[in-house]
Amino acid sequence: MKVNKKKWLIGVAATILSFSLVGCTQKEKTDADSSVKKNATVLKLAHFQPGNADQPKHAAALAFESYVEKHTNGAIDVQIYPASQLGDEKTILENLKMNTVQMTIIHDGPISSVFAPMGVYNLPYLFNNQGEAWTVYDSEFTKDLGEEMRQATGIRLLGMADNGVRHFTNNKKEIKSIEDMRGLKMRVQPGPLFENMMKATGASPSVISWPELPSALQQGVVDGQENGVTNILAASLYESQKYVTLDSHIFSYHAYLVSDKFHDSLTKEQQKVIQEGVDLVKWIHRGMTSSQDMNAGAILAGKGMTVTTISENEIEKFRQVTQPAVAEWLRKEADNKWVDGILNEIESLQSGN
């Protein structure tokens, strides 16, 4: 199938804008879409950000829906369920295995709980910039890792995009050095990797799911958390967090996952369309998220937060404390080849080989 990608992306951008202007809901949009056949195969796509077109996950999901329904001639009906409507992360991943949910765009912590090697992308202070991260996300290394995950879990990796460059926030004090982390009660997303990283800093980690995080911060259950600017804005975390330290400790990712049972039920041409759709819309997702990451300081200062930038020397101290601790844990949970593999990928990238 030959696709004019440039024209399609321009059309999708206009479609997303129209959805944001009219506040179109999934039901309204589906009911109005005569291109979807009555006996179409249903693809339920779950994600966890608000169902607004200014949110990267949802914008990408809308674009994916448009692409897949158009290029399968309505044979696949993509139904989007944002904002945890179908359950939390653990529930969605279990339902993906059973094919009661067909697809998800999900963040990194829960994935590494299901398949530990996916945690290698979260080694602290691994990437220097988005270009490095995207190169690894699209590499043969990632294809091989995804295939091993499919064989082990029945979940197929279609692509990866940004979940934001993660920074520390709290409501107690500025964090200017590794010593300032000591004694803070910090929320981490589900997944032992993030717990190990936080423990290594000297802070006390507390696992809290994404939907519960805003209230936990407001009620003082924890002092702070770590997230990218997109998620800080999405959940209005700046309302309960005074301080943000731009340390870029993890280039967090979202994975586009599909039930292998569902994938195998499709025709080869439909499988190709699904993959093409992800290959295209991940760039919408990456672009929207990275544009906010690159302006994080100004954006969060504009929301009233005190923004702290720490020196390269201090960053190196954080790296020396956290990266070995997380790597040691990963070597116990995952095959050494994945830890060594990603470190070799980074070394090759950063040396220019």
Rank of each mutant, 00 (worst) to 15 (best):
C24H: 02
I274K: 03
F251P: 03
G87A: 06
E69G: 01
F19G: 08
R187S: 11
T230P: 03
G11Y: 11
N336C: 06
L246I: 15
G87E: 10
E28C: 06
K317C: 14
T91H: 12
I106A: 04
A298H: 14
A296G: 02
A59E: 05
V22K: 11
D144R: 12
S351H: 14
D180N: 10
A63W: 02
K70M: 10
D180L: 12
V188K: 08
N295W: 14
A40G: 10
R150L: 13
G302V: 04
H71Q: 05
W329I: 08
G220F: 00
S248H: 12
A63T: 00
K29G: 11
D340S: 13
N4H: 10
G202A: 00
Q218T: 13
Q275Y: 08
N163K: 15
R286G: 00
T100G: 01
N170R: 07
V222K: 01
E328G: 09
S248E: 10
L157W: 01
E132H: 11
D162R: 07
Y256M: 02
A334D: 03
N128H: 12
Q85E: 14
D77W: 07
N196C: 09
A325I: 07
I155K: 06
Q225T: 14
A116T: 00
E174G: 10
M288S: 05
H285T: 02
K173M: 14
K37Q: 13
G183S: 09
D293K: 00
A152P: 05
R286Y: 02
E333Y: 01
M118H: 02
I346M: 15
Q323M: 08
G228K: 02
L217S: 00
V244E: 05
A60L: 04
N344M: 14
